[in-house]
Design a protein around this nucleic acid. Structure first.
Length: 284
DNA sequence: CACCATGTTCCTTG
DNA sequence: CCAAGGAACATGGT
């Protein structure tokens, strides 16, 4: 469930549930997700610490942890990769097949499940240094955005996935933002005009903010192994209501009519990833 | 069997 | 040094 809006909604959901809970036992079933932290260091550091805060940066979950004696705080960094999930599970419930890390908090376990194991849960925070501005913050201004785009010959769609340019945009919202801005995904980044840069900046912010709002107002079910989390797990789970349908306007909708002009949505491959767009609304 | 999938990192080439 | 392209990672769905 991994782009900025999904991570933001998860952080808001999980933060209060974890607050002040102490890690009693640490069980790592896939040490690979700790990379580059060693299993020993991870286990020794986490055991006995408590959750003191949770925030988001780009697609990363930033857990603030505290220890009692000696009184100290440190950061635990999480990334969901393509298929990661994090949730609390009563201890009597069976762990999912692909539980990568399980932190026992007493009556419940904090589970990091990840089918493909592309995600991470680590003590190494260096990844944060490489991130560009938060698209929803004021620091994300059109001037700086434009400067960064000017240096690239890559198609704008590909550039939007560059986390050092803007943090948190992924394959779904890159297509959605370009559609909203009426800009062709093939346009070279350096060819965007000043007005297009402003339009794209606004479209990005709107698309991301609306997705967060949508995820915050819909009853989500993050708990339970394999349980649908409704809106935020891409690929419809059975029982997910219809309002989910209207949320994405072009992503994964090749062949469907464009919601603006009715012509067929097209699929294109760029940098080995699918891009969806309307060739009529996004000309040039 | 084929191809596709919400992401990042590493390696190579220019 | 940098930009860009491609493979790799690992598992499951269609």
């Amino acid at each position: 469930m991994p782009e900025l809006p999904e991570v933001e909604v998860l952080a808001r959901h999980l933060g209060p549930l974890l607050e002040n809970k102490t890690v009693r036992e640490v069980s790592v079933r896939r040490p690979k997700v700790l990379r580059p932290t060693s299993l020993r260091k991870f286990t020794q550091t986490l055991r006995g610490s408590r959750f003191a805060g949770l925030s988001r940066r780009g697609k990363y979950l930033v857990f603030t942890m505290r220890t009692a004696r000696p009184a100290r705080s440190f950061t635990l960094l999480g990334h969901l990769g393509m298929t990661g999930r994090m949730y609390l599970l009563p201890v009597n419930r069976q762990l999912p097949k692909h539980a990568a890390v399980v932190l026992n908090l007493g009556r419940e376990n904090f589970v990091f499940e990840d089918t493909r194991y592309f995600g991470r849960l680590t003590l190494d925070v260096r990844a944060l240094e490489k991130l560009g501005p938060e698209p929803l913050a004021e620091a994300f201004d059109a001037k700086q955005f434009g400067q960064a785009l000017k240096r690239s010959r890559q198609p704008i769609k590909v550039k939007l996935l560059d986390q050092s340019l803007v943090a948190g945009v992924g394959n779904i919202y890159a297509s959605e933002a370009l559609f909203r801005a009426g800009i062709s995904p093939r346009l070279a980044a350096r060819r965007l005009k000043v007005e297009q840069i402003q339009t794209l900046r606004r479209a990005l912010r709107e698309v991301l903010a609306e997705a967060i709002d949508c995820g915050s107002t819909v009853p989500l079910n993050f708990s339970g192994a394999g349980a649908p989390d409704g809106l935020f797990y891409f690929g419809r789970a059975p029982g997910v209501p219809d309002y989910y349908e209207e949320r994405l306007r072009v992503y994964d909708r090749a062949g469907h009519p464009c919601p603006e002009c009715g012509s067929g949505i097209k699929r294109l491959v760029q940098a080995a990833r699918s891009t969806y767009y309307c060739s009529r609304c996004q000309a040039g």
